[in-house]
């Protein structure tokens, strides 16, 4: 390990990545990138977030102790930097999920929050949220419905009283925006080799670690975080 550092050949770089991916920071970074690049909300990484929180708290306490005990200021500042980086990752991860839930909320009135109604009415998606996220979405929906009710719906005739439907004759929730899953994402394999079945081709897409592929989101959806990471 000591000799191959900085060599730059891909096999060795890969070994690094594997080695690095054992830390929670690296896992959190991957989760953040996946979440950011995916068009829909992904499963909340509850255990990982819990572990990251605990570690952050522990280091916060350590840094305080260091400061109290007259520890070398350089060391203290380095611990603080490590802490800042971990906190940035955790915040970014949590925030990108919230943005996804409420994207565009301020830029529209009738269109309501972007995906929150969609996520809420779909059990599978709703279960991907953490408990605090569920509370947040629920409150958001209530506030938004109340706002729409007061500003718009109460001034409209009886047939137009739903925040989710255009009118009483709509058969489904036709005012609930849905994420576009027919989109393409950039991804890398987290294993040495991965084979992906494509929709329009007999031949599978075969990827090695050094390959970057742009593929239809739905063909790799199930592999994200397992064999494939979004970049």
């Amino acid at each position: 390990m000591a000799e191959d550092l900085g060599d730059g050949s891909t096999a060795e770089m890969d070994e690094y990545e594997t080695l690095m991916s054992t830390t929670d920071v690296e896992l959190l970074k991957t989760a953040w990138r996946n979440e950011k690049a995916a068009p829909e909300i992904l499963q909340f990484q509850a255990l990982l977030v819990k572990r990251a929180r605990e570690q952050i708290q522990l280091v916060e306490e350590t840094v305080e102790e260091f400061e109290g005990s007259g520890m070398d200021p350089l060391t203290v500042s380095l611990y603080q930097m490590d802490l800042d980086r971990a906190q940035f990752l955790l915040r970014s991860y949590l925030r990108v999920r919230l943005q996804k839930v409420t994207a565009n909320s301020l830029s529209c009135v009738l269109q309501i929050e972007k995906y929150m109604f969609y996520i809420w009415k779909n059990d599978n998606l709703r279960n991907r949220l953490s408990e605090p996220e569920k509370i947040f979405v629920k409150r958001c929906i209530n506030d938004m419905e109340k706002h729409i009710e007061e500003t718009v719906l109460s001034k409209l005739p009886d047939n137009y009283q739903s925040a989710r439907r255009q009118s009483i004759i709509s058969e489904e929730d036709d005012m609930v925006p849905e994420p576009q899953l027919d989109t393409f994402v950039a991804c890398k394999s987290s294993k040495n080799f991965v084979s992906i079945r494509l929709v329009d081709s007999e031949r599978p897409l075969e990827m090695e670690r050094h390959d970057v592929s742009f593929v239809l989101y739905k063909v790799i959806e199930d592999k994200i975080g397992v064999e494939i990471d979004l970049v």
Binding site: V185, L205, F214
Partner: peptide
Amino acid sequence: SAVKIAHLSAMEVNVVRPFVVRSLQ
């Protein structure tokens, strides 16, 4: 439905992504 590019780097992915995604779509 897929484009594979070996050895594309992180910054390069980020730069070409908007265009590639739109054309593939």
